[in-house]
Amino acid sequence: MYNKKFWKQLLIALALFLAGWFTFGQAQAQGKPEKTKVTIAVGGKNLFYYLPLTIAERLGYFKEEGLDVEIVDFAGGAKALQAVVGGSADVVSGAFEHTIGLQAKGQRYQEFVLQGRAPQIVLVVSNKTMPGFKSIADLKGKKIGVTAPGSSTNMMANFVLAKAGLKPSDVSFIGVGASAGAVAAMRSGQIDAMANLDPVISMLTQKNEVRIASDTRTLKDTQAVFGGNMPSGCLYASAAFIQQNPNTTQALTNAMVRALKWLQKAGPSDIVKTVPESYLLGDRALYLAAWDKVKEAISPDGMMPADGPRTAQNMLQQFDAELKGKTIRLEDTYTNAFVQKANAKYK
C-alpha cells in the first residue's frame, strides 16, 4: 500500500510536468510562422554562392522550422530581385548590395541572414579572343559575360573596370547565366571576358582557357579588391514582409544558420551526397576542387560584419549614378537580430 508521501511526490511531479507542457505549448504557439508557405527567388542556385540555401532545403531544415519553401531559380540575381519587387516571390537569396540600390530608389529592403562573407566572383579573360591581354584597360570595347545584367557579377565587373578608369558604357555586358551556358559562351568566343562564380570558373581555368584578372573567392583577395569585408549572398526581403512576418523570418534564419553550421563541419563527400547531381556539371573532382577554393567565403554564423554595408556602398558609388547625392541609411539595409537568436538556438 502506497503512503501519503509517495502520493504527494507524485502529484508534485505531475503538476510540474503539466506546467512545463503548458509553457512549451505557449512557446510553440508564440513561435508559429505567420506565413508557412514562402517563395524564395534565387539567381543561379547551383553556384557555391547559394550553397547554404540548397543545404537548408535538401536537409529539411525549412520543413523542421514549420515552413513549406518553394525556391524559384532565375538566370541571375537581378532577375530574382525583380520577382520579389513584382510580388511573385517573398524573399530573395541574392547579393546584399541590392538592398542599397533599392533604398536609393525609395524602396526599403533588408538583409536578415548572411550566406557569404566574400563575393566569390571572379573576372576572367579569354585566352582565345584576347591572347595579348595585359591589363583591365584592354577590356575597353569588349564583350563581358555576366550571370544577368544588373546582377552582382555585373556590379563586380563595373567596380573593377572603374578602378581602371573605364565606365560601364565602355564595354558590352551580355547575360550568360551561371551554368553550362556560361562555359559555352566563353569557349565559343561569344564573349571576351566574364564575371562568374564557381564551379563555372574552375571549369574554365583547369584547361587554361581563361586567365584570372580579379578574384574574390578568399577573404584576403576580397579585402584587396574592395578595401574591406564585402558581404555577398544573403536572404533579404521587404521591410514590410519582415515586420508582418517576424516568426516566419526567424524560421527562415534558423534554417539557414543550421545550414551554415553544417557546412563548417561537412566533408567533401557530405556535400557531394547532399547537392543535386546536376550541380557537379559532370565532374565531381572539379566540383570538390572548386569547393576547396571558396569554402572560406561561406559565413560561419550568418552575421553581417560591421564594416560590410559601408564597403558595399563604397563599391556601388564608384559606378552607380543613381547613388550620387542620395543619403543611404545603411542601418536600415540589414539586421542581425534574427541571426543572434538563431545562433543562441543552434550552437
Rank of each mutant, 00 (worst) to 15 (best):
M1K: 03
N3Y: 05
K4V: 06
K5P: 04
K5I: 13
F6V: 12
A13D: 08
A13W: 03
L18Q: 10
F24V: 11
Q28W: 10
Q30R: 07
P33V: 05
E34V: 09
I40Y: 02
I40R: 00
V42R: 02
V42D: 01
L47M: 05
P52N: 02
P52G: 01
T54K: 00
E57W: 04
E57G: 03
F62T: 11
E64T: 04
V69I: 13
V72N: 00
F74A: 02
A75S: 15
G77P: 13
G77H: 06
G77Q: 06
G77M: 10
A78H: 09
Q82P: 06
G86W: 04
G86Q: 11
G86S: 12
V91W: 00
S93P: 05
G94Q: 01
A95T: 07
E97W: 13
T99Y: 04
T99A: 10
T99W: 07
Q103M: 15
A104T: 02
A104W: 06
R108A: 12
R117C: 08
R117V: 14
Q120K: 06
L123T: 08
L123A: 03
V125T: 04
N127Y: 09
K128Q: 14
T129L: 15
P131V: 12
P131Q: 10
I136E: 02
D138H: 04
D138A: 08
L139S: 02
G141D: 04
K142H: 00
I144R: 04
T147W: 04
S152M: 00
T153L: 02
G165A: 12
G165H: 03
I174G: 07
I174L: 15
S179Y: 08
S179K: 00
A180H: 04
V183T: 13
V183A: 04
A185K: 02
M186K: 08
R187T: 14
S188R: 10
Q190F: 04
L197Q: 11
D198A: 05
I201F: 01
S202Y: 10
I212M: 00
I212F: 00
S214M: 07
D215E: 09
T216R: 02
R217M: 12
L219H: 05
K220D: 15
D221G: 01
Q223S: 06
G228Q: 03
M230T: 10
S232E: 10
F241I: 08
Q243S: 15
N245L: 11
N245M: 09
P246C: 05
T249C: 07
A251G: 02
T253L: 14
N254F: 13
M256E: 09
A259F: 10
K261Y: 05
W262I: 03
P268C: 11
S269G: 02
D270K: 09
I271G: 01
T274R: 13
P276A: 09
G282C: 13
Y287L: 09
Y287P: 04
L288V: 14
A290K: 03
A290M: 09
V294L: 11
E296F: 08
A297S: 15
A297V: 14
I298V: 15
S299G: 08
P300Y: 11
M303L: 15
M303H: 13
G308R: 01
A312N: 15
G325C: 14
K326W: 07
K326N: 13
K326L: 13
I328R: 07
R329Q: 15
L330N: 12
Y334I: 10
K341P: 10
A344I: 11
